[in-house]
Simulated scan of single mutants.
Amino acid sequence: MPTVSGEKQKLIKPPPPIPKKRIVGYYLGTEEKGIQKFQLGKLSHAVFAFVSMDSDGLLCFKDEKTEIKFLNLKSKSKNISTDLNTMISIGGQNNSEYFSQVVADPRKQTFVHFIIVRTEFDYFRTFIDSILNFLKTHQIDGVDIFWTWPKDSDKFKYSAFLKKLRETLKQSYIISIAAPPTGIENWEAGFDLDEILECVDFINVICMDYYGPWDNQWGNPAGPISPLYSGVGARENFNVDFTMQYYTSETKNSNKFNIVIPFYVRLWNNVKNAVQPENMEAFRNVELVKFGDGVRADGCPFIPRRSLEKERWKLSPASWDDKSKSSYIYDVDKETYLTFETDMSVHAKRNYVNQKGLGGYCIWSVDMDDSKNSLLNLLSSK
């Protein structure tokens, strides 16, 4: 339609909508109370962690209690009206010791006196068949491979395994993997990202635990669990942004990556002055204690928020570190240091995900939130 001046009116296109982000919730089943339908309704993917794998590549539950927790999650997932995908995760810190042999090159065979004995191919095929059988039997949507520590020597056999897994599951099931933070002892060396991205639907980057009260000298200093930016000393690159810059620049496919949001709280004792010369209050020196022949930090690395509520610990008011976009509480009298996610840190990470075009978030873990599901509500709010 012409304007008063006779010129054609220019149509102003609205900005494109921000794509809906994944909210992948790992569920550990550590709390006596099972997962709630309310929690499941906030997720795009509910991932049960973990289903165990034996040395032959066969899937199994750790015990009867673990199986009951899984069946409870599966049952409740069926009654969710949202587009929820239900998955299992295989591996984790305490069940990854067999991955290297199980995903070994299927072309290799061992001969003893001209008789073919059990081969690496058998493990490879058994593992894939066991995954497919589990998904079919339980009628769930996909599998997450949680092997965050493959060595450089595992690199090509891991991507070959994922390629064969995709060929077997076709597009009928979701495949995701977990990946480690980068710049720490070359943990990322075992991932052939170009090959892997062709096989998986998304990657959950476990960009957390940069600082923790560990059982060794690395328990010093105290600092944020998952700082968005910043760091101190030799750990200046121990942050989410450094990790994600690596993954996205390597692949040019940022939408396939989710960043972790840790729902737990971390505690140090014997915490002293701020780290010098940076003088950043969120990073503080820790007095280590003797432990066997070495030293360690004193504290608790993984505290569910519900546990703190029962013990009447308060997470407010909290201090805010603008450089790392992290919250913490330091009690100078008790020499205790708590670090955790808050409204401000979650908002900062939501903005980061949108600005960088990342695919979304993975929660570690849904059952570590407080009784009001405060972080889950915040993360899933529009």
Rank of each mutant, 00 (worst) to 15 (best):
G25I: 14
F48D: 11
K272L: 13
L84Q: 08
K157R: 10
E31Q: 15
T30G: 08
E120K: 14
K314S: 12
K163N: 06
R305G: 03
N186R: 07
F50T: 06
N220H: 13
D333M: 04
L375Q: 13
K325P: 00
I88A: 05
K163W: 00
T126R: 12
S96D: 02
F99R: 02
F242G: 00
D56F: 10
L73M: 15
S75Y: 08
F242R: 03
I303D: 06
Y264W: 13
K69P: 00
A318T: 03
E120D: 11
T168A: 07
T82C: 00
L169T: 06
S81D: 08
P301L: 00
N279G: 05
P317E: 05
S55A: 14
A274S: 15
S319Q: 13
I177V: 14
S100T: 11
K314L: 13
V47Q: 05
D152R: 09
S55H: 14
L11M: 09
K164D: 09
K155C: 06
L162R: 02
R22H: 13
E97M: 04
I174S: 01
E195I: 01
M368Q: 15
H45P: 03
V51T: 12
S96A: 10
F38I: 13
I18G: 01
N204F: 04
Y330N: 08
D333A: 10
G219C: 06
D215I: 01
P16V: 07
I203G: 04
N253H: 05
K157D: 13
I23K: 14
F134V: 04
I131Y: 09
F70T: 02
L165W: 00
G292H: 11
H113E: 12
V103I: 15
E236Y: 09
E311C: 10
D144A: 09
K325Q: 14
S176V: 04
F291G: 05
K164H: 07
L28Q: 14
I145Q: 05
K382A: 12
K21R: 15
K256G: 04
S226A: 15
K76Y: 02
A297N: 09
I128E: 07
G25V: 12
F70V: 01
D241A: 10
N79V: 06
I174N: 01
A318I: 00
L228F: 03
K33Q: 14
E198A: 05
N373D: 15
P150K: 01
S5H: 04
F340I: 07
W218Y: 11
V346C: 06
V51A: 01
S75K: 11
F263I: 05
E7R: 09
L378G: 05
T243F: 06
T126L: 07
Q139I: 05
T251W: 02
S81Q: 10
R305P: 01
D369F: 11
I80L: 04
E278S: 12
Q101E: 10
V295M: 11
T336W: 10
F283A: 12
A297R: 04
S380F: 01
Q276S: 14
C362A: 13
F114S: 14
T82Q: 07
T251L: 05
P227H: 02
L379A: 11
T336H: 06
L58V: 12
T3N: 13
V205N: 04
Y26R: 04
N133L: 13
S89H: 01
D56M: 08
K256A: 06
D367P: 07
L40V: 11
A274Y: 00
L135S: 11
G294Q: 10
I203P: 05
M1R: 11
K256M: 08
V205F: 03
N186H: 07
E278F: 09
K21H: 12
